[in-house]
């Protein structure tokens, strides 16, 4: 569904690249997570994939369209949910969706049904301007589904949502996957990526450092950690240590010999820990 080969992009059109030599493929029906800290190049890559930024160097194909000659018709097959809510505040929720439905050439979903799906059914006739941040976010998410997209770009789809609503959104994404929808998920939230993604790409400083499934990453980097909580100087302390690396193994021994251990658990490495380990960078 998406093919990217040796993609470069520079806003200043020189060798200061926001994205450097990025290559990846996303299969039909796959949920592909694009993970990285702010300024890593996620939005730039997404901008090129959606035609909002001009392709400068490299080869990009999206939903069968070559990025060198993107057509507006492409958006009949694409849905996009933005991190920052962008709905008409002076229109009701239903009017917002009904208006966007008219901007596509394909069969669209019923606005009321979509609002029910994201838990805004009873707010259909309220102006979006009166919505909370989370409600606006759900409306933006609902709008991205209006044209029954085959390829779905989701930028931080659960940000600012309470856990129950976030769970609903995750269920919707799962259901769409079952319907064969391909999802390109951009997020900081490693838990969401872990739960939803078939594969993830770690991007830092414009370069993709790694692409693999969360499961493989955990097998490779996880299950070899132990979380130790102990008392040190009458205070509680905590360390997360590898069970395979010599330095960490020695530290575990030292902790067991020296301090009073309160709890000790082997654990799977989280995606965030793996990200930090692989890239040497945090996600903020």
């Amino acid at each position: 569904m998406i093919k990217v080969k040796n993609l470069y992009h520079s806003y200043s059109k020189d060798d200061k690249y926001a994205v450097k030599d990025a290559s990846f493929e996303v299969e039909k029906g796959e949920i592909f997570g694009f993970l990285g800290p702010s300024g890593a190049g996620k939005s730039t890559t997404q901008g090129v994939l959606t035609g909002l930024l001009q392709l400068q160097k490299g080869e990009v194909t999206v939903a069968g369209y070559d990025a060198k000659k993107f057509s507006k018709k492409m958006f009949n097959d694409i849905g996009m949910s933005f991190e920052q809510s962008n709905v008409y505040n002076k229109m009701t929720a239903k009017e917002n969706l009904a208006f966007y439905a008219k901007l596509f050439d394909v069969e669209t979903k019923d606005p009321q049904e979509l609002l029910e799906l994201v838990g805004l059914g009873d707010k259909a006739n309220l102006k979006a301007g009166d919505f909370s941040k989370g409600m606006k976010h759900r409306l933006t998410f609902a709008r991205s589904m209006i044209n029954n997209p085959k390829l779905w770009f989701l930028d931080e789809p659960t940000t600012g949502l309470d856990p129950a609503i976030a769970a609903t959104i995750k269920d919707i994404i799962w259901n769409e996957k079952k319907n064969g929808v391909t999802t390109f998920l951009t997020t900081h939230n490693m838990f969401i990526a872990d739960e939803l993604c078939d594969r993830v790409a770690f991007i830092v400083d414009g370069e993709i450092k790694l692409i693999d499934s969360p499961r493989n990453l955990k097998l490779q980097y996880g299950a070899k950690f132990v979380d130790i909580e102990y008392i040190k100087d009458n205070d509680s302390a905590r360390e997360s240590l590898s069970t395979v690396e010599a330095k960490d193994r020695n530290r575990i021994k030292e902790l067991l010999d020296t301090y009073e251990i309160q709890t000790m658990h082997t654990k799977e490495a989280t995606l965030e820990e793996i990200f930090i380990k692989v890239t040497g960078r945090g996600l903020v």
Partner: peptide, 18 residues
Amino acid sequence: VEEKGDNTISAINVTTVS
């Protein structure tokens, strides 16, 4: 200005409207 305030031009950019 209303479109800018609501950030909706970016949403229009990802529709089939030229």
